[in-house]
Simulated assay, not measured.
Amino acid sequence: MGAAIGMTLVSASGDSGMPDTPCSSPYVTCVGGTHLVASTEGVIEKEWAWVMSGSGLAKTFARPYWQDGDVTADRRAMADLALNSSTEQPMWMRRWSKWEYFGGTSFAAPAFAGMLAVVNGYRRSLGLPRVGFLNPILYGHKPTRSTFRDIEYGQTEHYHAGPGWDYPTGLGAPDIAMLALALP
């Protein structure tokens, strides 16, 4: 229902290296995982598919039209995009008056949802429309696709990352500032 009224629903791909629910739904933007290493200045030194990034084919959902150009299988393929999920290079968060660190796609997915909230606020300040249902735009709008950093290395138990869309990392890791302006 959310996608039908123009909402982006975000979910973690899971931390088992296998497809997970609700990410298998074509109405959900599925966030997979990477292992990101950055300098103390925030410069990305290297990034690869996280070995536990939930990825693969849905058991019940057919391939949505917007994956036709990237996926040859007849079922919905995951993930759509990826963010750092490695527990070796975790994300930090301030909670209950102290700093804690977390990993996993269950942390990456809400981080991406928060980024989309900031994108919507920024776009509103410019008089641009909100993001809406993101999946068809991610796959079918070339300027939006170009805002993703392709993750070409790394693997899960069953899938390798490679040039272009792949199961563990989808279209890659988004540059949120560029994404905010590239969306139609």
Results as ranks from 00 to 15, higher is better:
Tyr153Gln: 10
His158Glu: 13
Glu88Pro: 08
His141Arg: 08
Asp150Arg: 10
Met178Val: 05
Tyr139Leu: 11
Val71Cys: 15
Met7Leu: 13
Ala111Thr: 14
Arg75Phe: 07
Arg149Met: 14
Glu45Phe: 10
Gly6Tyr: 15
Arg130Ser: 14
Pro136Gly: 03
Leu116Ala: 04
Tyr27Thr: 01
Ser39Trp: 05
Ala79Trp: 00
Ile5Leu: 06
Ala58Trp: 02
Ala161His: 08
Ile44Cys: 12
Gly14His: 09
Gly42Arg: 09
Met93Cys: 00
Ser97Gln: 15
Leu138Pro: 15
His158Pro: 04
Asp15Glu: 00
Thr147Ile: 08
Val28Ser: 07
Pro129Ala: 06
Leu171Met: 12
Gly103Cys: 12
Trp165Glu: 04
Arg63Asn: 09
Gly140Tyr: 10
Gly54Glu: 00
Thr29Lys: 04
Tyr101Gly: 01
Gly17Asp: 04
Gly127Leu: 01
Ser53Arg: 07
Ala113Tyr: 12
Leu57Asn: 07
Gly6Trp: 14
Tyr159Ala: 02
Val10Ile: 04
Asp80Ala: 06
Trp96Gly: 09
Gly121His: 02
Gly6Met: 08
Pro22Arg: 02
Cys23Thr: 14
Pro26Gln: 08
Glu157Ile: 00
Ala182Ile: 06
Thr169Leu: 10
Thr29Ile: 12
Gly17Trp: 00
Arg123Cys: 10
Lys98Arg: 15
Gly32Gln: 05
Tyr101Ser: 03
Ala111Arg: 09
Thr156Lys: 05
Met7Phe: 12
Thr72Arg: 13
Thr156Ile: 09
Ile5Trp: 10
Asp68Asn: 05
Ile176Lys: 05
Thr60Met: 09
Ser125Val: 00
Met115Tyr: 13
Tyr139Ile: 12
Ala82His: 00
Glu45Lys: 15
Ser106Tyr: 09
Met91Pro: 06
Lys59Phe: 01
Tyr27Lys: 02
Ala12Val: 12
Glu47Ser: 04
Arg94Asp: 08
Thr105Val: 01
Pro143Leu: 07
Arg145Cys: 07
Ala113Gln: 09
Cys30Arg: 13
Leu138Thr: 15
Asn135Gln: 13
Leu138Tyr: 15
Tyr65Ser: 09
Ile5Thr: 14
Ser53Thr: 07
Phe112Met: 02
Gly140Leu: 14
Leu134Cys: 12
Tyr101Gln: 10
Val31Pro: 01
Met52Thr: 11
Asn120Ile: 01
Ala117Arg: 09
Gly6Ile: 14
Ser39Tyr: 03
Gln89Val: 11
Asn135Thr: 13
Ser11Ala: 11
Gly32Tyr: 03
Met93Pro: 04
Ser125Met: 12
Asp80Ile: 13
Met115Glu: 10
Met52Leu: 10
Asp20Thr: 11
Thr169His: 08
Arg63Pro: 10
Gly140Pro: 05
Thr156Gln: 07
Tyr159Phe: 07
Ala109Pro: 02
Pro184Ile: 12
Pro136Arg: 08
Asp74Cys: 04
Asp150Lys: 13
Ala73Tyr: 10
Arg94Trp: 11
Phe133Lys: 00
Ala182Arg: 13
Glu157Lys: 05
Ser106Thr: 10
Arg149Asn: 11
Ala177Asn: 12
Trp99Gly: 06
Met78Asp: 15
Val10Asn: 00
Phe112Lys: 05
Val37His: 06
Leu138Gln: 13
Ser16Thr: 07
Met115Ala: 15
Arg123Glu: 11
Tyr122Gln: 03
Ala82Arg: 00
Val28Trp: 03
Ala111Gln: 06
Ile176Asp: 03
Met18Glu: 13
Ala117Ile: 06
Gln89Ser: 11
Cys23Asn: 09
